[in-house]
Design a protein around this nucleic acid. Sequence first.
RNA 1: GGCCCCUUCGUCUAUCGGUUAGGACGGCAGAUUUUCAUUCUGUAAAGACGGGUUCGAUUCCCGUAGGGGCUACCA
Length: 506
Amino acid sequence: MTRLRFAPSPTGALHIGGIRTALYNYLIARKAGGTFILRIEDTDQARYVPGAEDYIIRALTWLGLNPDEGPTQGGSFSPYRQSERTQIYREHAMSLVDQGKAYYAFDTPEELDAMRQRVIDKGVTTPKYDASVRSDMINGLTLSSDEIKQKLASATPFTIRLLVEPGHDIVIHDKIRGEVTFDSTELDDKILLKADGYPTYHLANVVDDHLMQITDVIRGEEWLPSTAHHVLLYRAFGWIDTMPTFSHLPLILKPNGHGKLSKRDGQKFGFPVFPLAWHTEHLEDSIEGFDSYGFEPAAVINFLAFLGWNPGTEKEIFSLDELINVFDAERIHKGGARFDYDKALWFNHQYLQVLEYEAVKGRLSQYAGAEGIHMNVVDGEAVFKLLKPRLHRLKEYFTQGYYFFTDDLAYDEVEIIKKWSPEAGMLLGKIASDIKNAEPFTPENASIRVKELITSSGIKMGVIMPLIRAALTGSIQGPDVFEIAGILGQSSTTERLLNMARWSLK
RNA sequence: GGCCCCUUCGUCUAUCGGUUAGGACGGCAGAUUUUCAUUCUGUAAAGACGGGUUCGAUUCCCGUAGGGGCUACCA
């Protein structure tokens, strides 16, 4: 049975790197007919952010990446929140101590700093708590059993460290990268259990992956170096035979290629890096998400799937279900991929084109509500049909089509002044009074009548048409003017034309 | 610095020793449009460098360079 897990840490909003990891886990689990598990790795009390877990769950729901097991849906391996499993980790850590595979360490932070300084003074650039120094430290290896008992009895804070034997190679078989070898001499005696009683990632992760019978670990490349420790842990526990496979995903890089994409990059480069908007108590700290930018979840999924993978064909548009079918872990890349916002917009544009008004109506009115726009002054569906080909984000419905929802037009005076003349104004007046009585008032009919008037007036099409457009929208560019007029309606169109006929520079 | 990973058009990528090195985004040009956008057509644009292996390397190996990750009682 294939079992995969997505195991985020609730330290804030989850960014798209995490989402892609979730997506790949989900795809592989579904393709294998296996189980997709959400596990919350909340073992760092200092970095814990209230609401982050809820955010993660809402984000996965928005994207359609629904877990089979997790804190909300439960499952036969509960609990799925590591903070609720501390007893399990403690017992496992203790069992390693009992077997001599891990040891108590009583060093204070100050003593650790002193050790690092001593090592640096000797010319070693990377101080590590390892075989070269552990005999100089205050730990279960240097203390007598009576001293240990005494420390424990007096509630002296302690950590539990993994005893790493130097001098041998640890070979990892990564499904994406092949064999990766680490020299155990380079590895430190990693802390397994912290002084606050919580486990570190390494312990909790290995214990849970084993207990939850995870078959494949798919995570970001930043975990590759510590995988050697994880293998050591599997060995120490005697779980090596059922150790999951590892796949370390390439990172998503900043658009300039400099480093991995980080949470702050959204503000910096002007695009969303979070699936959902993140609201904090301080409004200025709130951040936009793909949702608030007006992206379709399916487009975000499609875009993310292609950042580090491709099907090997020239087809690029895939629904989540199609992705499950074609996804092949063998085709996951090794190198990092830069985040390309233009491509994200293109994907979203593609998805918008196949949407019907009914599917977006709800979200549109949400946006409208937030912006204080009154949507029902015109036929929203007609507006959507007209605007759709030019939308890259649903939200642009209101920026590009603002003139449908207000009579307060922002005239592009720089352009208008180039075209406007008293003669043009007179013609606009004539057109207005003609339109006023046009029957029926349809785009087609209006088009014919207006063009006839223009032709007989002798004024150039290229002069008067931009003015008509500006009359209706304020701008000299946009969708078909007569279609706009049709949606605006006869009286509004007439009125706007008259306003332009009487235009003069203020 | 040390350890590890990576390296094809500006960007995302195809190629699993023999190709005119293909596609997409973006760019440019043209068509369509009264305009802009869309759409369509066309076009420029790439194997980091140096050694090997081989009849033949973008592809395999080594080195160099460059980029990235890790190097916490964070994940």
